[in-house]
Computed example of a mutant assay.
Amino acid sequence: MSDDMEVRRRRAQWRAGHRGTKELDLLVGRFAEATIAGMSEADLAHFEQFLAVSDPDLQAWLLGPERAEAGAFGDVVGEIRKFHGLG
């Protein structure tokens, strides 16, 4: 694995666990801890884009009925919800 990928993985994992709200820190951070090491470069790039979304949108997608509106990130939202047993 290249050093660049390792740096990106660590940076993404830190960003996932330091969202600014406890709920998102736990949901997104624990998901990242468990899965980020196995992500391909394309999956990591997609996850990094997901992390750039605003906290209110992420919280609505992960915890509310708005999850159907996650658009391009519906796959990530679904994986996180499944990981935490949220259906």
Rank of each mutant, 00 (worst) to 15 (best):
M1E: 13
D4A: 12
D4W: 08
D4R: 14
D4I: 15
M5R: 13
M5K: 12
M5F: 11
V7Q: 14
R9I: 10
R9Y: 07
R9G: 03
R9Q: 12
R9L: 06
R9T: 00
R9E: 04
R10A: 15
R10F: 14
R11Y: 12
R11F: 09
A12K: 06
A12C: 10
A12Y: 00
Q13P: 06
Q13M: 14
W14L: 15
W14F: 15
W14R: 11
W14Q: 11
R15H: 14
R15S: 07
R15G: 02
A16G: 01
A16V: 08
A16K: 04
G17L: 05
G17N: 01
G17R: 00
G17C: 05
G17V: 01
H18A: 03
H18T: 07
H18S: 08
R19C: 06
G20Q: 01
T21G: 04
T21H: 03
K22Y: 07
L24H: 03
L24K: 03
L24Q: 01
D25H: 01
D25V: 05
L26G: 09
L27Q: 03
L27N: 02
V28T: 01
V28M: 06
G29V: 03
G29N: 02
R30I: 07
R30L: 10
A32I: 05
E33A: 14
E33T: 09
A34G: 07
T35E: 11
T35W: 05
I36F: 08
A37Y: 06
A37K: 15
A37M: 11
G38L: 05
M39Y: 07
M39V: 05
S40G: 10
S40L: 09
S40P: 02
E41T: 14
A42L: 14
A42F: 08
D43V: 02
L44Y: 00
L44A: 07
A45L: 08
A45R: 13
F47S: 04
F47N: 00
F47G: 00
F47E: 03
E48V: 06
Q49P: 07
Q49F: 09
F50D: 00
F50G: 00
L51E: 04
L51K: 02
L51Y: 07
A52Y: 09
D55K: 15
D55F: 04
P56I: 06
P56D: 10
P56N: 10
P56A: 10
P56Q: 08
D57M: 13
D57E: 10
L58K: 08
L58T: 02
Q59P: 04
Q59T: 09
A60D: 12
A60M: 11
A60V: 03
W61I: 04
L63S: 09
L63Q: 13
L63G: 01
G64S: 12
G64N: 10
P65Q: 15
P65R: 14
P65E: 12
E66R: 12
E66Y: 03
E66Q: 15
E66W: 08
R67T: 04
A68Q: 15
A68W: 05
E69Y: 08
E69A: 15
G71V: 04
G71W: 00
A72Y: 11
F73W: 06
G74F: 02
G74P: 00
V76W: 06
V77F: 02
V77I: 07
G78D: 03
E79L: 13
E79A: 15
I80D: 06
R81K: 14
F83T: 05
F83I: 07
F83C: 02
H84C: 02
G85N: 10
G85H: 08
G85I: 06
L86K: 06
L86I: 10
G87T: 12
G87S: 11
G87D: 13
